[in-house]
Design a protein around this nucleic acid. Sequence first.
DNA 1: GACCTTCTCACCTACGTGTTAAGC
DNA 2: TCGCTTAACACGTAGGTGAGAAGG
Lengths: 205, 205
Amino acid sequence: SGLEVGSEKGDALEREIKVELEEKELWTNFKELTNEMIVTKTGRRMFPVLKVSISGLDPNSMYSILLDFVAADGNRWKYVNGEWIPGGKPEPQSPSCVYIHPQSPNFGAHWMKAAITFSKVKLSNKMNGGGQIMLNSLHKYEPRVHIVKVGRPQKMISSFSFPETQFIAVTAYQNEEITALKIKHNPFAKAFLDAKERCNSKDVL
Amino acid sequence: SGLEVGSEKGDALEREIKVELEEKELWTNFKELTNEMIVTKTGRRMFPVLKVSISGLDPNSMYSILLDFVAADGNRWKYVNGEWIPGGKPEPQSPSCVYIHPQSPNFGAHWMKAAITFSKVKLSNKMNGGGQIMLNSLHKYEPRVHIVKVGRPQKMISSFSFPETQFIAVTAYQNEEITALKIKHNPFAKAFLDAKERCNSKDVL
DNA sequence: GACCTTCTCACCTACGTGTTAAGC
DNA sequence: TCGCTTAACACGTAGGTGAGAAGG
Protein backbone atom coordinates (compact mmCIF):
# COMPACT_ATOMS: atom_id res chain seq x y z
CA SER A 1 0.00 0.00 0.00
CA GLY A 2 2.76 2.40 -0.97
CA LEU A 3 2.28 5.68 -2.75
CA GLU A 4 1.25 5.34 -6.36
CA VAL A 5 2.98 8.05 -8.28
CA GLY A 6 1.04 9.26 -11.28
CA SER A 7 3.67 11.64 -12.59
CA GLU A 8 7.04 12.19 -10.99
CA LYS A 9 7.47 15.61 -12.54
CA GLY A 10 5.11 18.55 -12.34
CA ASP A 11 3.72 20.21 -15.42
CA ALA A 12 5.11 23.35 -17.00
CA LEU A 13 3.34 25.70 -14.58
CA GLU A 14 4.79 24.00 -11.52
CA ARG A 15 8.33 23.33 -12.67
CA GLU A 16 9.87 25.82 -10.25
CA ILE A 17 8.83 23.98 -7.07
CA LYS A 18 11.88 23.59 -4.84
CA VAL A 19 12.30 21.58 -1.66
CA GLU A 20 15.38 22.25 0.45
CA LEU A 21 16.65 20.10 3.31
CA GLU A 22 17.18 21.98 6.60
CA GLU A 23 20.02 21.30 9.07
CA LYS A 24 22.23 19.78 6.40
CA GLU A 25 25.35 19.99 8.57
CA LEU A 26 23.82 17.87 11.31
CA TRP A 27 22.60 15.28 8.82
CA THR A 28 26.04 15.20 7.19
CA ASN A 29 27.70 14.49 10.53
CA PHE A 30 25.51 11.41 10.92
CA LYS A 31 25.84 10.33 7.30
CA GLU A 32 29.64 10.30 7.53
CA LEU A 33 29.42 7.65 10.26
CA THR A 34 26.61 5.77 8.42
CA ASN A 35 23.41 6.88 10.13
CA GLU A 36 21.17 4.49 12.06
CA MET A 37 17.52 4.87 13.10
CA ILE A 38 15.89 2.75 15.79
CA VAL A 39 12.73 0.88 14.84
CA THR A 40 10.45 -0.57 17.55
CA LYS A 41 7.14 -2.39 17.68
CA THR A 42 5.23 0.72 18.74
CA GLY A 43 7.27 3.09 16.57
CA ARG A 44 10.25 5.35 17.25
CA ARG A 45 10.73 8.96 16.18
CA MET A 46 13.57 9.91 13.86
CA PHE A 47 16.58 11.85 15.06
CA PRO A 48 17.62 14.11 13.46
CA VAL A 49 14.12 15.21 12.53
CA LEU A 50 13.49 15.67 8.81
CA LYS A 51 12.83 19.35 8.08
CA VAL A 52 12.36 20.91 4.66
CA SER A 53 11.49 24.32 3.28
CA ILE A 54 9.39 24.56 0.15
CA SER A 55 9.09 27.30 -2.44
CA GLY A 56 7.35 27.70 -5.77
CA LEU A 57 3.87 26.53 -4.77
CA ASP A 58 0.74 28.42 -5.74
CA PRO A 59 -0.15 30.21 -2.48
CA ASN A 60 -3.89 29.77 -3.04
CA SER A 61 -3.91 26.12 -4.11
CA MET A 62 -4.27 23.26 -1.67
CA TYR A 63 -1.53 20.68 -1.16
CA SER A 64 -0.80 17.69 1.04
CA ILE A 65 2.77 16.89 2.01
CA LEU A 66 3.72 13.22 2.25
CA LEU A 67 6.78 11.31 3.44
CA ASP A 68 7.91 7.82 2.56
CA PHE A 69 11.12 5.83 2.61
CA VAL A 70 12.79 4.36 -0.46
CA ALA A 71 14.97 1.29 -0.05
CA ALA A 72 18.41 2.52 -1.07
CA ASP A 73 19.35 -0.98 -2.18
CA GLY A 74 18.09 -4.54 -1.77
CA ASN A 75 20.82 -5.60 0.65
CA ARG A 76 20.63 -6.66 4.24
CA TRP A 77 23.45 -4.91 6.10
CA LYS A 78 25.65 -6.21 8.91
CA TYR A 79 27.84 -4.34 11.37
CA VAL A 80 31.10 -6.33 11.60
CA ASN A 81 34.36 -5.13 13.17
CA GLY A 82 33.19 -1.53 13.28
CA GLU A 83 32.03 -1.51 9.67
CA TRP A 84 28.74 -1.85 7.83
CA ILE A 85 28.98 -4.48 5.08
CA PRO A 86 26.25 -5.52 2.66
CA GLY A 87 25.32 -9.16 2.94
CA GLY A 88 23.01 -11.89 1.75
CA LYS A 89 20.91 -11.76 -1.33
CA PRO A 90 19.77 -8.42 -2.72
CA GLU A 91 16.01 -8.47 -3.08
CA PRO A 92 13.73 -5.96 -4.77
CA GLN A 93 12.25 -3.64 -2.16
CA SER A 94 9.07 -1.63 -2.56
CA PRO A 95 8.72 1.81 -1.01
CA SER A 96 7.34 2.08 2.50
CA CYS A 97 3.84 3.12 3.46
CA VAL A 98 3.29 6.82 3.32
CA TYR A 99 3.15 9.28 6.24
CA ILE A 100 0.87 12.25 5.71
CA HIS A 101 2.11 15.45 7.36
CA PRO A 102 -0.46 16.26 10.07
CA GLN A 103 -1.03 19.80 8.76
CA SER A 104 -2.28 18.37 5.46
CA PRO A 105 -4.17 19.46 3.48
CA ASN A 106 -3.26 23.13 3.48
CA PHE A 107 -2.65 26.14 1.29
CA GLY A 108 0.59 26.64 -0.59
CA ALA A 109 1.01 29.84 1.41
CA HIS A 110 0.95 27.81 4.65
CA TRP A 111 3.58 25.32 3.50
CA MET A 112 5.90 28.08 2.29
CA LYS A 113 5.73 30.42 5.29
CA ALA A 114 7.93 28.24 7.53
CA ALA A 115 10.02 25.06 7.47
CA ILE A 116 8.00 21.84 7.51
CA THR A 117 8.94 19.45 10.30
CA PHE A 118 8.27 15.71 10.36
CA SER A 119 8.90 15.36 14.09
CA LYS A 120 5.95 13.03 14.74
CA VAL A 121 6.60 10.30 12.19
CA LYS A 122 7.35 6.96 13.87
CA LEU A 123 9.38 4.11 12.41
CA SER A 124 8.40 0.54 13.25
CA ASN A 125 9.47 -2.97 12.35
CA LYS A 126 5.96 -4.35 12.71
CA MET A 127 2.74 -3.83 10.84
CA ASN A 128 0.26 -2.40 13.31
CA GLY A 129 -1.77 0.19 11.48
CA GLY A 130 -1.36 2.92 14.05
CA GLY A 131 0.08 5.43 11.62
CA GLN A 132 3.64 4.21 12.01
CA ILE A 133 5.82 3.49 8.99
CA MET A 134 7.05 -0.07 8.75
CA LEU A 135 10.67 -0.59 7.64
CA ASN A 136 12.82 -3.71 7.46
CA SER A 137 15.53 -3.77 10.09
CA LEU A 138 19.09 -3.77 8.78
CA HIS A 139 18.05 -2.31 5.45
CA LYS A 140 19.10 1.08 4.13
CA TYR A 141 16.53 3.79 3.37
CA GLU A 142 16.33 7.28 1.91
CA PRO A 143 13.51 9.60 3.03
CA ARG A 144 11.44 11.11 0.22
CA VAL A 145 8.95 13.99 0.33
CA HIS A 146 5.94 14.23 -1.96
CA ILE A 147 3.91 17.33 -2.72
CA VAL A 148 0.40 16.47 -3.83
CA LYS A 149 -1.98 19.06 -5.21
CA VAL A 150 -5.45 18.16 -3.95
CA GLY A 151 -8.97 18.97 -5.05
CA ARG A 152 -7.97 19.13 -8.70
CA PRO A 153 -9.22 16.89 -11.51
CA GLN A 154 -5.79 15.41 -12.19
CA LYS A 155 -3.47 15.00 -9.21
CA MET A 156 -0.04 16.48 -9.63
CA ILE A 157 2.76 14.94 -7.57
CA SER A 158 6.32 16.21 -7.19
CA SER A 159 8.82 14.05 -5.31
CA PHE A 160 12.14 14.94 -3.69
CA SER A 161 14.60 12.79 -1.79
CA PHE A 162 17.65 13.64 0.26
CA PRO A 163 20.80 11.49 0.10
CA GLU A 164 22.18 13.23 3.22
CA THR A 165 19.38 11.65 5.26
CA GLN A 166 20.04 7.99 4.34
CA PHE A 167 20.11 5.61 7.29
CA ILE A 168 20.05 1.94 8.20
CA ALA A 169 17.06 0.79 10.25
CA VAL A 170 18.17 -1.04 13.42
CA THR A 171 16.55 -2.43 16.56
CA ALA A 172 19.59 -1.37 18.61
CA TYR A 173 22.43 0.99 17.76
CA GLN A 174 25.47 -0.78 16.31
CA ASN A 175 28.02 2.04 15.99
CA GLU A 176 28.65 3.68 19.35
CA GLU A 177 29.78 6.88 17.61
CA ILE A 178 26.23 7.18 16.27
CA THR A 179 24.89 6.69 19.80
CA ALA A 180 27.19 9.42 21.10
CA LEU A 181 26.12 11.84 18.35
CA LYS A 182 22.43 11.17 19.05
CA ILE A 183 22.94 11.78 22.77
CA LYS A 184 24.88 14.94 22.05
CA HIS A 185 22.16 16.58 19.96
CA ASN A 186 18.81 15.10 21.02
CA PRO A 187 17.34 16.95 24.03
CA PHE A 188 15.31 13.88 24.99
CA ALA A 189 18.55 11.99 25.63
CA LYS A 190 19.78 14.66 28.06
CA ALA A 191 19.96 12.15 30.89
CA PHE A 192 22.82 10.30 29.18
CA LEU A 193 24.59 13.50 28.20
CA ASP A 194 24.63 14.55 31.85
CA ALA A 195 25.97 11.15 32.88
CA LYS A 196 28.81 11.44 30.36
CA GLU A 197 29.65 14.97 31.51
CA ARG A 198 29.80 13.82 35.12
CA CYS A 199 32.24 11.07 34.16
CA ASN A 200 34.42 13.41 32.11
CA SER A 201 34.52 16.04 34.84
CA LYS A 202 37.77 16.32 36.76
CA ASP A 203 36.00 18.10 39.63
CA VAL A 204 34.69 14.93 41.22
CA LEU A 205 36.19 14.21 44.61
CA SER B 1 -10.78 41.64 15.09
CA GLY B 2 -13.66 39.26 15.70
CA LEU B 3 -15.27 37.04 13.12
CA GLU B 4 -17.26 38.85 10.51
CA VAL B 5 -20.26 36.74 9.70
CA GLY B 6 -21.44 37.12 6.15
CA SER B 7 -24.48 34.87 6.43
CA GLU B 8 -25.52 33.11 9.60
CA LYS B 9 -27.47 30.46 7.75
CA GLY B 10 -26.29 28.23 4.94
CA ASP B 11 -27.97 28.15 1.55
CA ALA B 12 -30.53 25.58 0.48
CA LEU B 13 -27.95 22.92 -0.33
CA GLU B 14 -26.33 23.08 3.10
CA ARG B 15 -29.38 23.41 5.32
CA GLU B 16 -28.96 19.96 6.85
CA ILE B 17 -25.62 20.68 8.57
CA LYS B 18 -25.85 19.63 12.21
CA VAL B 19 -23.43 20.22 15.07
CA GLU B 20 -23.96 18.22 18.25
CA LEU B 21 -22.28 18.87 21.59
CA GLU B 22 -20.47 15.88 23.11
CA GLU B 23 -20.36 15.03 26.84
CA LYS B 24 -23.54 16.93 27.54
CA GLU B 25 -23.99 15.35 30.98
CA LEU B 26 -20.61 16.59 32.18
CA TRP B 27 -21.27 20.10 30.88
CA THR B 28 -24.69 20.08 32.53
CA ASN B 29 -23.17 19.18 35.90
CA PHE B 30 -20.98 22.28 35.68
CA LYS B 31 -23.73 24.50 34.31
CA GLU B 32 -26.02 23.69 37.24
CA LEU B 33 -23.42 25.17 39.62
CA THR B 34 -22.69 28.09 37.23
CA ASN B 35 -19.53 27.11 35.43
CA GLU B 36 -16.25 29.04 35.76
CA MET B 37 -13.18 29.04 33.51
CA ILE B 38 -9.78 30.32 34.63
CA VAL B 39 -8.15 32.99 32.48
CA THR B 40 -4.44 33.80 32.87
CA LYS B 41 -1.94 36.05 31.18
CA THR B 42 -0.36 33.22 29.17
CA GLY B 43 -3.66 31.44 28.57
CA ARG B 44 -5.43 28.53 30.29
CA ARG B 45 -7.10 25.54 28.67
CA MET B 46 -10.82 24.95 29.11
CA PHE B 47 -12.17 22.15 31.25
CA PRO B 48 -14.40 20.47 30.26
CA VAL B 49 -13.00 20.49 26.74
CA LEU B 50 -15.44 21.55 24.03
CA LYS B 51 -16.14 18.60 21.71
CA VAL B 52 -18.64 18.51 18.88
CA SER B 53 -19.66 16.09 16.16
CA ILE B 54 -20.68 17.40 12.78
CA SER B 55 -22.87 15.93 10.07
CA GLY B 56 -24.30 17.12 6.80
CA LEU B 57 -21.12 18.51 5.22
CA ASP B 58 -20.13 17.76 1.65
CA PRO B 59 -17.39 15.11 2.14
CA ASN B 60 -15.35 16.44 -0.78
CA SER B 61 -15.54 20.15 0.01
CA MET B 62 -13.01 21.94 2.17
CA TYR B 63 -13.99 23.56 5.47
CA SER B 64 -12.33 25.35 8.37
CA ILE B 65 -13.78 25.01 11.88
CA LEU B 66 -13.64 28.09 14.11
CA LEU B 67 -14.43 28.79 17.74
CA ASP B 68 -15.27 32.07 19.42
CA PHE B 69 -17.02 33.22 22.57
CA VAL B 70 -20.16 35.33 22.64
CA ALA B 71 -20.79 37.56 25.65
CA ALA B 72 -23.96 36.10 27.14
CA ASP B 73 -24.86 39.52 28.55
CA GLY B 74 -23.18 42.85 29.20
CA ASN B 75 -22.98 42.41 32.95
CA ARG B 76 -20.02 42.10 35.25
CA TRP B 77 -20.74 39.28 37.69
CA LYS B 78 -19.89 39.02 41.38
CA TYR B 79 -19.74 35.99 43.65
CA VAL B 80 -21.37 37.07 46.94
CA ASN B 81 -22.50 34.74 49.74
CA GLY B 82 -22.21 31.66 47.56
CA GLU B 83 -24.16 33.19 44.69
CA TRP B 84 -23.34 34.82 41.39
CA ILE B 85 -25.13 38.15 41.03
CA PRO B 86 -25.02 40.51 38.06
CA GLY B 87 -23.64 43.93 38.92
CA GLY B 88 -22.63 47.28 37.57
CA LYS B 89 -23.58 48.72 34.25
CA PRO B 90 -24.42 46.39 31.38
CA GLU B 91 -22.23 47.31 28.43
CA PRO B 92 -22.41 46.09 24.85
CA GLN B 93 -19.85 43.34 24.33
CA SER B 94 -18.39 42.29 21.01
CA PRO B 95 -17.54 38.66 20.31
CA SER B 96 -14.06 37.43 21.15
CA CYS B 97 -11.25 36.83 18.72
CA VAL B 98 -11.56 33.60 16.83
CA TYR B 99 -9.67 30.34 17.41
CA ILE B 100 -9.05 28.26 14.30
CA HIS B 101 -9.14 24.53 14.91
CA PRO B 102 -5.59 23.29 14.21
CA GLN B 103 -6.77 20.65 11.72
CA SER B 104 -8.20 23.41 9.49
CA PRO B 105 -8.62 23.50 6.59
CA ASN B 106 -9.81 19.98 5.86
CA PHE B 107 -12.34 17.93 3.93
CA GLY B 108 -15.91 17.51 5.08
CA ALA B 109 -15.20 13.79 5.30
CA HIS B 110 -12.41 14.47 7.82
CA TRP B 111 -14.56 16.65 10.08
CA MET B 112 -17.40 14.13 10.07
CA LYS B 113 -15.43 10.94 10.71
CA ALA B 114 -14.83 11.67 14.40
CA ALA B 115 -15.69 14.17 17.14
CA ILE B 116 -13.85 17.48 16.90
CA THR B 117 -11.98 18.47 20.06
CA PHE B 118 -10.92 21.98 21.03
CA SER B 119 -8.48 20.83 23.70
CA LYS B 120 -5.71 23.29 22.80
CA VAL B 121 -7.63 26.58 22.89
CA LYS B 122 -6.34 28.87 25.64
CA LEU B 123 -8.30 31.59 27.42
CA SER B 124 -6.51 34.74 28.53
CA ASN B 125 -7.33 38.03 30.17
CA LYS B 126 -4.57 39.86 28.29
CA MET B 127 -3.98 40.70 24.66
CA ASN B 128 -0.75 38.99 23.68
CA GLY B 129 -1.18 37.70 20.18
CA GLY B 130 0.05 34.19 20.91
CA GLY B 131 -3.07 32.50 19.63
CA GLN B 132 -4.90 32.79 22.94
CA ILE B 133 -8.47 34.08 23.12
CA MET B 134 -8.90 37.19 25.26
CA LEU B 135 -11.97 37.34 27.51
CA ASN B 136 -13.03 39.83 30.19
CA SER B 137 -12.80 38.38 33.67
CA LEU B 138 -16.09 38.15 35.56
CA HIS B 139 -18.11 38.24 32.38
CA LYS B 140 -20.31 35.42 31.11
CA TYR B 141 -19.63 33.73 27.76
CA GLU B 142 -21.13 31.13 25.47
CA PRO B 143 -18.83 29.16 23.13
CA ARG B 144 -19.82 29.22 19.47
CA VAL B 145 -18.58 27.05 16.59
CA HIS B 146 -18.39 28.27 13.00
CA ILE B 147 -18.14 26.11 9.89
CA VAL B 148 -16.56 28.01 7.02
CA LYS B 149 -16.46 26.61 3.50
CA VAL B 150 -13.13 27.65 1.99
CA GLY B 151 -11.81 27.99 -1.53
CA ARG B 152 -15.21 29.00 -2.88
CA PRO B 153 -16.15 32.30 -4.53
CA GLN B 154 -18.62 33.22 -1.79
CA LYS B 155 -17.82 32.05 1.72
CA MET B 156 -20.60 30.18 3.46
CA ILE B 157 -20.63 30.28 7.25
CA SER B 158 -22.83 28.29 9.61
CA SER B 159 -22.72 29.07 13.33
CA PHE B 160 -23.78 27.01 16.33
CA SER B 161 -23.64 27.78 20.03
CA PHE B 162 -24.21 25.66 23.09
CA PRO B 163 -26.03 27.06 26.15
CA GLU B 164 -24.86 24.07 28.23
CA THR B 165 -21.30 25.33 27.91
CA GLN B 166 -21.82 28.85 29.27
CA PHE B 167 -19.30 29.94 31.88
CA ILE B 168 -18.02 32.97 33.76
CA ALA B 169 -14.36 33.86 33.13
CA VAL B 170 -12.44 34.17 36.43
CA THR B 171 -8.84 34.62 37.53
CA ALA B 172 -9.44 32.32 40.51
CA TYR B 173 -12.27 29.92 41.24
CA GLN B 174 -15.05 31.43 43.33
CA ASN B 175 -17.37 28.48 43.95
CA GLU B 176 -15.54 25.64 45.66
CA GLU B 177 -18.06 23.15 44.29
CA ILE B 178 -16.80 24.07 40.82
CA THR B 179 -13.23 23.49 42.00
CA ALA B 180 -14.17 20.08 43.38
CA LEU B 181 -15.90 19.09 40.12
CA LYS B 182 -12.88 20.18 38.06
CA ILE B 183 -10.52 18.19 40.28
CA LYS B 184 -12.81 15.16 40.10
CA HIS B 185 -12.85 14.99 36.31
CA ASN B 186 -9.66 16.62 35.01
CA PRO B 187 -6.75 14.14 34.92
CA PHE B 188 -4.23 17.00 35.14
CA ALA B 189 -5.58 17.85 38.60
CA LYS B 190 -4.98 14.29 39.85
CA ALA B 191 -2.63 15.52 42.55
CA PHE B 192 -5.48 17.26 44.38
CA LEU B 193 -7.84 14.35 43.90
CA ASP B 194 -5.30 12.07 45.59
CA ALA B 195 -4.87 14.56 48.46
CA LYS B 196 -8.61 14.67 49.03
CA GLU B 197 -8.85 10.89 48.97
CA ARG B 198 -6.07 10.59 51.53
CA CYS B 199 -7.90 13.02 53.85
CA ASN B 200 -11.22 11.22 53.44
CA SER B 201 -9.68 7.82 54.04
CA LYS B 202 -10.39 6.26 57.43
CA ASP B 203 -7.40 3.94 57.04
CA VAL B 204 -4.85 6.52 58.15
CA LEU B 205 -3.12 5.66 61.42
C1' DG C 1 -10.37 46.17 54.60
C1' DA C 2 -12.35 43.93 50.42
C1' DC C 3 -11.75 42.35 46.00
C1' DC C 4 -9.36 40.84 42.25
C1' DT C 5 -5.00 39.45 39.97
C1' DT C 6 -0.37 37.53 39.65
C1' DC C 7 3.30 34.48 40.62
C1' DT C 8 5.64 30.45 42.41
C1' DC C 9 5.16 25.87 43.71
C1' DA C 10 4.47 20.75 44.26
C1' DC C 11 2.40 17.32 41.82
C1' DC C 12 0.54 15.40 38.18
C1' DT C 13 -0.06 13.63 32.79
C1' DA C 14 2.16 12.23 28.71
C1' DC C 15 5.79 10.63 26.37
C1' DG C 16 10.77 10.66 24.14
C1' DT C 17 15.67 8.81 25.34
C1' DG C 18 19.43 5.11 25.53
C1' DT C 19 20.62 1.28 28.83
C1' DT C 20 20.43 -3.22 30.27
C1' DA C 21 19.13 -7.83 30.76
C1' DA C 22 16.35 -11.29 29.07
C1' DG C 23 14.35 -13.78 25.14
C1' DC C 24 14.68 -16.32 20.88
C1' DT D 1 27.46 -19.19 20.69
C1' DC D 2 26.18 -15.56 18.07
C1' DG D 3 23.11 -12.14 16.18
C1' DC D 4 19.15 -9.78 16.55
C1' DT D 5 14.85 -8.33 19.05
C1' DT D 6 12.06 -7.24 23.03
C1' DA D 7 10.52 -5.24 27.38
C1' DA D 8 11.32 -2.95 31.79
C1' DC D 9 13.62 0.85 33.53
C1' DA D 10 15.62 5.42 35.11
C1' DC D 11 15.80 9.88 33.69
C1' DG D 12 14.88 13.42 30.89
C1' DT D 13 11.51 17.07 28.08
C1' DA D 14 7.24 19.52 27.93
C1' DG D 15 3.48 21.25 29.87
C1' DG D 16 -1.40 21.15 32.45
C1' DT D 17 -3.44 21.44 37.57
C1' DG D 18 -5.19 24.06 41.81
C1' DA D 19 -3.08 25.91 46.24
C1' DG D 20 -1.46 29.59 48.57
C1' DA D 21 1.07 33.73 49.33
C1' DA D 22 1.96 38.14 47.62
C1' DG D 23 0.72 42.22 44.99
C1' DG D 24 -2.28 46.08 43.60
